[in-house]
Design a protein around this nucleic acid. Structure first.
Lengths: 158, 158
DNA sequence: AATTGATGGTTACATTTGCAACCATATCGT
DNA sequence: ACGATATGGTTGCAAATGTAACCATCAATT
């Protein structure tokens, strides 16, 4: 029969969103200021940089982005000459993406930024905070995996 | 000199964002389907429902939303006759917001939904997962508080 | 009381997003 | 071999968001 009390700032979805926004925007400010990158672009770069040549779909899976976001990010990075596409010989529907040397260079700089930011964060949160956070996130990640990939509000695919 | 390795899925901002999106969208699906509410509207409702009469600015602070989001959410809720505004006698710039009986009713139903969802989440994550997550989030919340309110990418106010 | 500056709130405009429809190619069932 | 269905990817359009400018009122200074 549920009393009347409810506090937004004890509600997990709210807390998570708030924390993610804070941490995410603060990081985004760095690379946005320095390279004019959007978040989908940064993620695409990170995916390609760390795992090498792959298709758009694979980028989406690797970085949890919808295909349209990936599509537009790929286009932007291509304009910038940071990645190039190449057709698959066997299956002409798909194209493989790969960073150009300039893209790889940018990637290296970006992950350096990312590492520094993560270190800064770890300093701010303290060892126990980081550890707790990571454990908690791991629990959610497991739920995501269980619930069939992370696909939920997407009527299409991932 | 920093080796070359970098994995997106070990990067905290990414992990947080992913988790927040998953948890948040799954909850949003509930109230969106049932009431056609947007997230800013739900937050506004929650703020007013739990803390009673307050101004738009207070809603923004209470629920971490920019003034424009609040403004539009308030407008939408007003259309729906879930809240009413009233002018302050002393200071004619500000208006006080209050839920109508219909709004309060909706609020009660919504927080019931929220409670059920949080319970579901706790079941999925397990006691230790929840505890870790909460501790980790608390650490971030403290950093947010320290960094002057949470204001960071906002050139305006909150 | 007139000027200056802050504050609560709204609005116009550009950018970003999500969704659905779409195109081209590939695969499956018959 | 042929139609149905699926898949990788792009695009058009509507809705959501961020930013800055704005309006009205209030407060402080002179």
């Amino acid at each position: 029969m549920t009393t009347d009390s409810f506090e937004l700032d004890q509600f997990l979805p709210y807390r998570l969103n708030r924390a993610a926004e804070f941490v995410g925007l603060r990081f985004a400010a760095h690379y946005k200021a320095k390279y004019g990158l959007t978040r989908p672009e940064w993620r695409t770069l990170a995916a390609l940089g760390s795992s090498g040549r792959m298709t758009s779909k694979a980028v989406g899976i690797h970085s949890s982005m919808h295909k349209t976001k990936v599509s537009r990010a790929v286009f932007a990075l291509e304009q910038r000459r940071w990645l190039k596409r190449s057709q698959d010989d066997g299956d002409r529907r798909l194209e493989h993406l790969e960073l150009t040397p300039a893209g790889q260079q940018a990637y290296r700089e970006l992950i350096e930024l990312a590492r520094r930011y993560q270190a800064e964060l770890e300093a701010e949160l303290g060892g126990s905070g980081i550890e707790a956070l990571s454990t908690g996130l791991a629990a959610i990640e497991q739920v995501i995996r269980r619930s069939g990939k992370g696909k939920l509000p997407e009527p299409d695919d991932l």
